[in-house]
């Protein structure tokens, strides 16, 4: 089991990080390229970057959704994201590993705050899954990744908590460490292939909408020609 743990923390982790970073970088580049191309073809190339950026920040503001019709679900999601974003980056144990591995470190969250955020992520992750199953509209259209990602994330946080708190851990430390490392590596690898990629793609959405509503002049006639329907009446 030690060998597996070392593999998961070493080569597999490095592979997972590379897959995640390259995969996300690919989306960033493809999105920027796609926007550029869309703008070149669009009939109206003016783009008020400021106004679209303002809309982007409005959409990114999680608290605005509390005024909508699913305020409870929104609150769960906001709390979930706090832990999911802050703990992996600012947990002291992780920073120690980065410092050991690549010589880079940064300020850490206080241990008690990390603990609370971890427990919050676990609780809200479970509740989000229940909320997804309870609300008919989301239940009906959920895909395998929508059901599998929350439990994986919860498992990552739960195993991480148990690793950091041996006194609370009813299982063997090695087993829990292996689960934690394995699940986190899996989540990193899945990042560019699942909706987790929204972490880099979300800022593009308003620009995509803006440019894609600027339809391409003449496209309709070209479609007609391609389909061999030129000259056909309305």
């Amino acid at each position: 089991m030690d060998t597996l743990i070392q593999f998961g923390r070493g080569p597999l982790f490095r592979f997972a990080v590379v897959v995640a970073l390259l995969g996300l970088a690919r989306y960033v580049v493809l999105s920027a390229w796609g926007l550029r191309r869309a703008r070149q073809r669009a009939g109206d190339k003016r783009l008020d970057f400021g106004a679209v950026a303002s809309r982007t920040f409005t959409v990114l503001n999680p608290f605005r959704y509390l005024a909508g019709n699913r305020a409870f679900y929104t609150a769960l999601s906001v709390l979930f994201h706090f832990g999911v974003i802050l703990v992996p980056i600012f947990f002291a144990g992780h920073i120690r590993l980065w410092r050991r591995g690549i010589g880079l470190g940064w300020p850490a969250l206080p241990a008690s705050l990390s603990d609370w955020l971890t427990l919050l992520s676990i609780a809200t992750g479970v509740l989000l899954l229940i909320a997804r199953a309870w609300y008919p509209a989301s239940r009906g259209m959920s895909r395998p990744q929508d059901w599998l990602l929350p439990p994986l994330i919860v498992l990552a946080f739960l195993s991480g908590y148990l690793v950091a708190h041996p006194g609370s851990n009813p299982f063997s430390l090695n087993l829990v460490t292996l689960v934690h490392v394995g699940v986190c590596d899996l989540l990193l690898i899945l990042t560019p292939f699942t909706k987790i990629a929204h972490c880099v793609m979300l800022p593009y959405s308003q620009y995509v909408n803006e440019m894609c509503w600027r339809l391409v002049p003449g496209a309709g006639q070209e479609v007609l020609k391609t389909l061999g329907k030129e000259g056909q009446p309305v």
């Binding site: 869309a38 959704y65 989301s138 909706k195 990629a197 391409v216």
Partner: peptide, 25 residues
């Protein structure tokens, strides 16, 4: 082939959270 819809569809395909927040509105 002739429009920008492909780019739109690529983006939307990757982004959907299937949370049904839209349904509530």
């Amino acid at each position: 082939r002739h429009s920008n819809y492909g780019f739109l569809l690529d983006h939307f395909s990757r982004m959907g959270a299937k949370c049904a927040m839209c349904a509530a509105e």
